[in-house]
């Protein structure tokens, strides 16, 4: 199918409203087509922008009390009907909660992956990619002291194909974290470290590397911290850098 045909369905895809088979086909296409991936990213950003801008008006507490007072005046009904109604409500509430929980978990994970990809792209596009420029881990690690509420270890990469370019502060969910940038051949790979509690989602920890918006991503939890390694390098490179971090932090 030509790209333009995919693009006509892009919004429906991002709204999660295509039939499941088409959703899967679209996933595969977006992962392999940089043009559609870029458009998808732009539209997701627009969706998020509208979502943030749209939550604009909040009722006053006084107005809420007034309405609640109005609807609290109610007619009498039989106890039998009350119990039937209460039972039905409970079932409805449990079913709703379950489906909401599953939906929220899935959407949180997708959103988190997407934000990690955004942070990676935004840093690489920036004129000052790193705040601390050094290939020496003993320079980069202390730079984070007092800036982030946790400590972490950087691996020794001198005898590997990776080189450390530097680090910068980053934020996820208004909480600070560390962002390190490594180079391997002509690729640049980001490593993000956050406190585990900050990022809520159901992470895929079964396989080492997954594809998100055409980037390869590895994530794991270690020592109360959540690590992400993301970049356009091959899965082997992402995996090797992840292994170096895992070995250092264990």
């Amino acid at each position: 199918m030509p790209c333009e045909s995919w693009k006509t369905k892009l919004d429906t895809y991002l709204d999660g409203e295509l039939p499941s088979e088409e959703m899967r086909a679209f996933d595969i296409h977006v992962h392999s087509c940089s043009s559609c991936a870029a458009d998808a990213l732009a539209r997701v950003q627009m969706k998020r922008g509208i979502q943030a801008a749209g939550k604009r008006f909040a009722p006053t507490a006084e107005f809420r009390r007034r309405v609640q007072g109005t609807i609290a005046t109610k007619p009498h009904y039989s106890f039998r009907r009350m119990w039937v109604f209460a039972a039905a409500l409970s079932i409805l509430a449990v079913a709703s909660l379950l489906s909401i929980y599953l939906g929220v978990q899935r959407s949180r994970t997708e959103q988190a992956y997407s934000e990690i990809a955004d942070l990676h792209v935004a840093a690489l596009a920036s004129s000052s990619r790193v705040d601390v420029v050094s290939s020496d881990r003993h320079t980069v690690k202390p730079w984070f002291q007092g800036k982030i509420p946790f400590a972490f270890d950087l691996p020794e990469v001198q005898n590997s194909e990776f080189s450390l370019l530097g680090g910068r502060m980053t934020y996820f969910g208004q909480t600070p974290g560390a962002h390190l940038i490594y180079a391997v051949r002509k690729h640049e790979i980001s490593v993000f470290v956050f406190q585990e509690g900050v990022l809520r989602g159901r992470w895929d920890e079964s396989s080492a590397v997954t594809k998100e918006l055409s980037f390869n991503v590895a994530t794991w939890r270690q020592g109360g911290l959540r690590y992400f390694v993301i970049g356009d390098a091959g899965t082997a490179d992402i995996n090797n850098l992840a292994k170096l971090f895992k070995a250092t932090s264990s």
Partner: peptide, 27 residues
């Protein structure tokens, strides 16, 4: 104390939507 089940249920279902409905109404 005269509290009917139906309106209790209505309140339980409707009040969680209050902020969203107000936001929509304002838009």
């Amino acid at each position: 104390s005269g509290v009917g089940p139906q309106s209790d249920s209505f309140e339980a279902l409707a009040m969680p939507l209050f902020d969203q409905l107000y936001n929509f109404a304002h838009w």
